[in-house]
Design a protein around this nucleic acid. Structure first.
Lengths: 218, 218
DNA sequence: CCCCAAAATCTTGTATACAAAATGCTTGAC
DNA sequence: GTCAAGCATTTTGTATACAAGATTTTGGGG
């Protein structure tokens, strides 16, 4: 826990932006939010600054902070980079992964599959995250792990919507298993390619989803 | 230019940290720096926060901000990631690069080579940066471009020391040309591999350099 | 009736004042 | 003499007050 007030406020605001409480382009009124959080403007400004550096809000001098939701094109780009980063993690991990981590990946997948069959969305997400984060960690490069986690967090709210696709989940599990097979075999190229494809498909599915949303809404 | 005071202070502090004005672990005294910059603590704190989010300083609650120079191990990791990011840029660029950009790459290389022969270090760095940044841009993924630029900036002070290696520069130019050849041919795999190797070598050379510094200093 | 300009208001950016916490120093006891 | 406890000092975190710029509103003129 850092300086807890501005830290917590930043998290809350982030959540609110992800929730869609703040629409794209909405202005973050400092005094209003300060009242709402029951603090002065100072910690709130620090929180806003933090969000600005994360790219969630745009800071216009003397004008204020405006929510900056990524558009569809930018999201596709982010998913593309996510796929590449995970592929790099997999490539490194194929050479460096420990036996214990391989067991953890198998375990996460087993529990993930169980969650799918039990229709337990929360458990599915938890185990799915454990799977991916384990690969980041086993890349053996702490900086890469951190950067990949950063993007993972940023894309989290958009990834979440994919549960709506029936049948995608079991397919996803099969892809996970194939990745682990390649990692176990120490086949860096295959592991990278499979994980890249696995994540890229998420981006594409997301694309479809957004499109259907758009046409349904307007 | 954002809120210019805290923005400028952050840049100055960043520069000072890179220069080695602040040693690793040094505390950034708010009141002292505020006096030094002739501002109050408020904009200075915002600048420090910014640096903290960039990872240049560590913020310990109720203790203060401490300069956090990356150690050798972390730097190697960062160069490793840099090589991978640039490789991804090259892979994308191979499919998307424009003829104009290819000409720009050749032009940058030519001027770079001229700078080497003229022993013009500044010109060399300028053109070298132009070369790499052009490839980032031609990846056709603005988000990837931005993220790669971020890491590029962060590694800049450490890359700068490589001029000391005689003979490395002409070799480096040859590698650049080979990368452009692959891009021109649209050979994504080769372009990626060559650029990855080019950047990875920088990291290794840097490693050697630091080692020699260490043994010389202590 | 509309448009332009000036003033008033609102909001951000900065400074200062205050509170809380941590560190270090001093003093006292064993 | 040393260790511990309490107090003082220093420093961060927060609140509030002040200044500067931007926007909006109002009033006057065309």
């Amino acid at each position: 826990m850092e300086r807890r007030r501005s830290e917590k406020i930043a998290q809350d605001l982030e959540e609110a932006i992800f929730d869609g409480t703040f629409a794209d382009g909405a202005r973050l009124d400092e005094v209003r939010l300060a009242r709402e959080f029951g603090v002065s403007r100072t910690p709130l400004r620090e929180a806003i600054q933090r969000l600005a550096l994360s790219g969630l809000v745009e800071l216009i001098p003397r004008r204020g902070a405006f929510v900056r939701q990524p558009g569809l094109a930018e999201l596709m780009e982010m998913f593309e980079v996510m796929a590449e980063l995970e592929a790099v993690c997999a490539r490194f991990a194929a050479l460096r992964i420990s036996d214990a981590a391989l067991l953890e990946l198998r375990d996460a997948n087993a529990k993930c599959l169980a969650a799918v069959e039990a229709r337990d969305a929360d458990a599915y997400y938890f185990e799915n995250e454990r799977f991916h984060k384990t690969i980041y960690r086993e890349s053996g490069n702490a900086f890469l792990e951190e950067e990949t986690l950063r993007l993972h967090r940023r894309l989290k709210p958009f990834r979440r919507q994919q549960l709506r696709f029936r049948g995608r989940l079991t397919q996803s599990m099969a892809e996970h298993e194939a990745v682990v097979d390649a990692l176990e075999a120490g086949d860096a190229g295959t592991a990278a390619a499979r994980l890249r494809e696995h994540v890229a498909v998420q981006g594409e599915k997301f694309h479809d989803l957004r499109m259907s949303f758009r046409s349904a809404a307007e």
